[in-house]
Amino acid sequence: MTTFKLIINGKTLKGEITIEAVDAAEAEKIFKQYANDNGIDGEWTYDDATKTDTVTE
């Protein structure tokens, strides 16, 4: 398992969460579901060097 981080730069929700996932694709799926569940819809970027997804509304 690898640690992945999501940075949220939303209009109403800001912060970050960290998860353990098998790979980047699994982490992205989990993060996008989390964002959807919390009403966050924005531009996504991924930095492989830091294993960090960022969503900005």
Rank of each mutant, 00 (worst) to 15 (best):
N36I: 14
Y46T: 04
A49K: 10
N38E: 04
E43Y: 12
F4W: 10
E16A: 07
K5L: 09
E28I: 14
L6E: 01
T50I: 06
G39H: 08
E26R: 05
T3G: 01
A25C: 15
G10H: 06
D48Y: 12
M1H: 07
G10A: 08
D37E: 12
I7V: 10
K32R: 14
K11E: 08
T50W: 07
G42V: 08
M1L: 14
A27K: 03
D53G: 15
K14C: 15
E43W: 13
T45Q: 07
A24C: 13
G10P: 01
N38L: 15
I40P: 01
F31P: 00
K29E: 05
E16V: 13
L13F: 15
G15L: 15
G42N: 03
E16C: 15
D53F: 15
T52H: 04
T56V: 09
T3C: 15
D48R: 09
Y46K: 03
I19S: 00
F4Q: 02
T12Q: 08
K5Q: 02
N38V: 11
N38Y: 12
A35M: 13
K14L: 08
Y46V: 04
D53H: 15
T50H: 06
A35Y: 05
D47Y: 10
I7Q: 02
A24N: 06
A25F: 10
V55L: 11
G10V: 11
I17G: 00
T52W: 06
V55Y: 07
I17Y: 10
T45Y: 11
I30F: 13
G39V: 02
E43M: 12
F4A: 01
A49M: 11
L13G: 07
G10N: 03
E43C: 14
N36W: 14
K14F: 10
T3R: 12
T54I: 11
Y46Q: 01
A35K: 02
G10S: 09
L13E: 04
T2E: 04
K51L: 09
V22I: 12
M1C: 15
D48P: 14
T54A: 05
K11L: 14
I40N: 02
G42I: 09
I40Q: 02
A27Y: 04
G42E: 05
K5N: 02
D37T: 06
I7D: 00
D47E: 09
K29M: 10
K5A: 02
E26F: 05
F31Q: 00
E43P: 04
V55T: 04
E16N: 05
Y34P: 01
T50V: 05
T18A: 03
Y34A: 00
F31L: 03
T18M: 09
I30Q: 03
A21S: 02
N36C: 14
D48I: 13
L13D: 04
A21K: 03
F31G: 00
T3L: 12
Q33F: 06
V55P: 06
D48C: 13
T50G: 06
T3F: 13
G15H: 13
I19W: 06
A49E: 11
A27G: 01
T2C: 15
G39T: 03
E26M: 11
D53Q: 15
A24T: 03
T3P: 02
E16L: 09
E20G: 03
A49G: 08
T50Q: 06
A27S: 01
T3M: 12
K11S: 10
T12S: 08
L6M: 08
T54C: 13
Y34W: 15
G39F: 09
A24Y: 15
E57Q: 09
G39Y: 06
I40S: 03
K29C: 13
E26G: 04
E26T: 11
T45A: 08
E28W: 14
T3D: 01
I7P: 00
A49P: 06
F4C: 11
G15T: 14
A25V: 11
T52F: 07
K29P: 00
K14M: 09
A25I: 10
T52L: 04
T50N: 07
G15A: 15
I17D: 00
D23N: 12
T45R: 08
D47V: 09
I17P: 00
T45K: 06
K14I: 11
I17K: 01
G15N: 07
T18P: 00
G10L: 14
W44D: 02
L6N: 00
E43K: 09
D41K: 12
E28F: 15
W44G: 01
D53N: 15
A24S: 06
K5W: 10
A21G: 03
Q33L: 09
T50L: 08
E57T: 09
E57F: 08
M1G: 05
D23E: 02
E28L: 15
E26V: 05
E28M: 15
A49H: 07
V22G: 03
K32C: 13
T52A: 05
D41R: 12
Q33Y: 05
K14N: 04
K14A: 05
K51T: 04
F4D: 01
D47A: 07
E16T: 13
G39E: 04
T50S: 10
I8G: 00
T2Y: 15
E26I: 05
T12E: 07
Y46W: 12
G10R: 03
A35H: 02
M1Y: 11
K32L: 08
I40A: 02
A21I: 07
D37A: 12
T12R: 07
D23K: 02
K32Q: 08
E57Y: 06
E26Q: 11
I7H: 02
K29V: 06
E20I: 14
T18D: 02
Q33I: 08
F4M: 00
Y34M: 06
K5C: 15
T54S: 05
T56C: 10
N9I: 13
T12L: 09
E20T: 11
G15D: 07
F4S: 01
E16P: 02
A49C: 14
T2V: 12
E26L: 03
D48K: 09
I19V: 09
T52K: 04
F31M: 06
A27D: 00
Q33C: 14
T45D: 06
T2M: 13
T45W: 10
A35E: 01
T54W: 08
K5I: 13
E20V: 15
W44I: 03
K32I: 06
K5T: 12
K5D: 01
Y46N: 03
E57L: 12
W44C: 08
F4N: 01
K32V: 04
D53M: 15
K32T: 04
G15Q: 13
N9W: 13
I8W: 14
I8T: 01
T3K: 12
V55W: 06
V22P: 08
K29D: 02
I17T: 00
I19N: 00
Y46L: 05
I7K: 04
W44M: 02
D48N: 09
T18G: 01
D41I: 14
D48S: 11
A25Y: 10
D37N: 07
D41H: 13
I30R: 04
K32G: 02
K29F: 09
T56D: 05
L6K: 00
E16S: 10
A21C: 14
E28K: 14
E57S: 06
T45L: 09
I8Y: 07
T45I: 08
E57I: 13
K51Q: 11
I19P: 00
D48F: 12
M1F: 10
T52P: 03
I40V: 07
T2F: 14
V22Q: 10
D53R: 15
E16Q: 11
F4I: 04
E20M: 14
A24Q: 11
I17F: 12
Q33K: 12
W44H: 02
A21L: 08
G42M: 08
T52E: 05
Y34G: 01
D37H: 05
N9K: 09
V55I: 11
L6G: 01
T2W: 14
E57M: 10
T54E: 05
A27F: 03
A27T: 00
E57A: 06
A25W: 10
T12M: 08
A49N: 09
D47Q: 08
T54Q: 06
E43H: 10
F31A: 01
F4L: 02
K11A: 10
N9M: 11
K14W: 13
E20N: 07
L6A: 01
F4R: 02
D47N: 09
K11R: 11
I19T: 02
N9R: 12
W44P: 01
N36M: 15
